[in-house]
Lab assay of single mutants.
Amino acid sequence: MEVRTIKVFTTVDNINLHTQVVDMSMTYGQQFGPTYLDGADVTKIKPHNSHEGKTFYVLPNDDTLRVEAFEYYHTTDPSFLGRYMSALNHTKKWKYPQVNGLTSIKWADNNCYLATALLTLQQIELKFNPPALQDAYYRARAGEAANFCALILAYCNKTVGELGDVRETMSYLFQHANLDSCKRVLNVVCKTCGQQQTTLKGVEAVMYMGTLSYEQFKKGVQIPCTCGKQATKYLVQQESPFVMMSAPPAQYELKHGTFTCASEYTGNYQCGHYKHITSKETLYCIDGALLTKSSEYKGPITDVFYKENSYTTTIK
């Protein structure tokens, strides 16, 4: 009895394709271990004539594949690729409408935090270190965002349907971005203890939790000093293409032309909904596939993004 075979390709990165001759009487799992086709788990399936010449994702289970996976995804987590594939199996079914010149995501599976993050990423200057993220990001900007969303979920250790947080998501993504040249110098002034300067680099240099107003941050924000008295913390120097200011959701007025974009969060910790506000020729609110415009805006804002380049204080 002759062994019926077909020729397929296996890959971990969709760049390096490895030619395989597979036995049609055995499952993919018996031949390769966990195997995925377009995100779908085909591990328990036997090869079919229609699979001839198709590319299958496999887990990096030998040295060659491990090197290829690390170079593309910059992670050695053995569960990463499987999590990416199972997320992709959902995100490829989502709709990605162009809204006001940006790629958004039609609401499904509690994905409003991903839509808000995706919209924000198209408006701030950011370059990702893992080629996987950078490639998928370019495709997302062009309207094909399924891979990018699935990668975000995998890097953030999230599953489809789980509630997510924009600030946490951005923080994970910033860790995989090139923020080497970003720098922030802060000064804390206390009447009792004097003053202390701190220099922050990388992710810490672009994120701040405690106030939404970048102007206020430049002037000074009140913080408790270690001595128990009130101290003032203010920005001395900022070198970065953008800054992200966050605070627990509270009524906040966004003035046209003073910011790049913002995240609105309605609801409580267990259950809520994100919308995205962007400042173009007027203010726009993007909620999944829905767009509304207004000249002014007041609502429960939790993150505001500002364009920056270089700032030095005039406070002496």
Rank of each mutant, 00 (worst) to 15 (best):
H48R: 14
P34I: 12
N178Q: 06
G39N: 06
I223Y: 13
Y214H: 06
E281L: 01
C190P: 02
V236Q: 07
A150Y: 00
L37D: 12
Y113P: 02
C112T: 09
K44E: 15
T211S: 06
V58L: 11
V185Q: 08
C271Q: 13
H51V: 00
P60Q: 04
M85P: 00
L153V: 07
T292H: 14
C225A: 03
T43K: 07
F56Q: 00
T302W: 06
S171P: 00
L179A: 02
E239G: 03
N187T: 09
K280T: 07
S246L: 00
N16H: 05
H276R: 04
L179W: 05
T35L: 06
M24D: 06
A146H: 06
F70M: 13
F242S: 08
G82T: 14
C149F: 04
F128E: 00
H48C: 15
S181F: 11
K255H: 15
A150T: 01
A142P: 01
C149E: 00
P300G: 08
K219L: 11
G161K: 02
D109I: 00
T76Q: 12
N157A: 05
L81A: 06
L173H: 01
V42N: 04
S79L: 14
S171C: 14
V188N: 04
L163W: 14
G101L: 01
K201H: 13
A136M: 08
Y172M: 08
D63K: 01
S279Y: 03
T260E: 12
Y57N: 07
A115L: 03
N49R: 14
G82R: 06
G82Y: 09
T159C: 14
K316G: 12
E264R: 03
E296S: 13
Y113G: 04
L81Q: 11
F128S: 01
T282C: 14
D41P: 10
Y234E: 02
G33L: 00
N187Y: 10
E308A: 07
K275D: 03
Q197V: 14
G29K: 03
Q222H: 07
G101M: 07
N100M: 12
K255A: 08
T232V: 13
L65M: 11
S295H: 08
N61W: 13
M244F: 04
C225F: 03
N49Y: 10
N129M: 08
G220A: 05
C149N: 01
Y274V: 07
L254Y: 12
G101H: 06
H51C: 05
L118N: 02
I152W: 02
Y28V: 01
L151P: 06
H256I: 15
C193T: 03
Q123S: 06
L173V: 09
T103Q: 05
C149W: 03
V3K: 13
T258R: 11
L81W: 08
S50E: 11
I301G: 06
T199Q: 13
K7Q: 15
A145Y: 05
Q196A: 10
A87L: 07
L179Y: 05
A145F: 02
F80S: 01
G39V: 06
A40F: 13
L235I: 14
F242D: 06
M244T: 06
T64W: 08
N147I: 06
M170E: 03
Q251E: 13
E204C: 04
T159Y: 07
T10P: 07
K219V: 09
T232C: 11
Q237G: 08
Y138F: 11
D303A: 08
R4V: 11
A154T: 07
M85R: 10
P248L: 13
W107L: 15
L291P: 08
H176E: 06
R139G: 07
M170I: 06
I124F: 09
T64C: 09
T75H: 04
Q222A: 10
A145H: 00
T232A: 04
D41M: 07
T11I: 06
Q216W: 03
I315T: 15
Q31F: 15
D13G: 02
R66L: 11
Y137H: 07
S295K: 11
T211R: 04
P60D: 03
L173T: 01
Y269G: 15
K183S: 10
A289G: 10
T169W: 02
L119N: 04
A40R: 14
H48N: 15
Q195W: 11
Y155L: 01
L153E: 00
I105T: 01
H176M: 12
N89A: 09
Q134E: 14
S240Q: 01
T10R: 09
N187H: 13
H51T: 00
T159E: 12
T19Y: 12
F174A: 09
A177G: 00
C156T: 09
P131Y: 01
Y306H: 03
A132P: 03
T35Q: 01
Y155V: 01
T198E: 11
K316W: 09
Y138Q: 14
S240I: 02
A177K: 04
Y73R: 01
F9I: 11
T226V: 15
V166S: 07
Y172W: 10
R83Q: 00
A247N: 10
G164E: 00
G82N: 15
Q197I: 15
T103E: 01
F259V: 05
T312N: 07
N268F: 08
K106H: 15
G101Q: 06
S50F: 15
K54L: 14
V185E: 03
Q175P: 02
Y96M: 03
T64Y: 07
T260S: 08
G101E: 07
V58N: 05
Y214N: 05
V58Q: 13
T64I: 11
A154L: 00
V203D: 01
R83I: 04
A117N: 05
D13H: 00
T312L: 12
M244Q: 10
D287L: 00
T278W: 00
E264G: 15
Q122L: 02
S310V: 14
T260M: 15
Q31K: 10
V160G: 05
N129G: 06
V243K: 06
E68S: 05
A154S: 07
T55L: 07
L153K: 01
I124C: 07
K106G: 13
T258F: 06
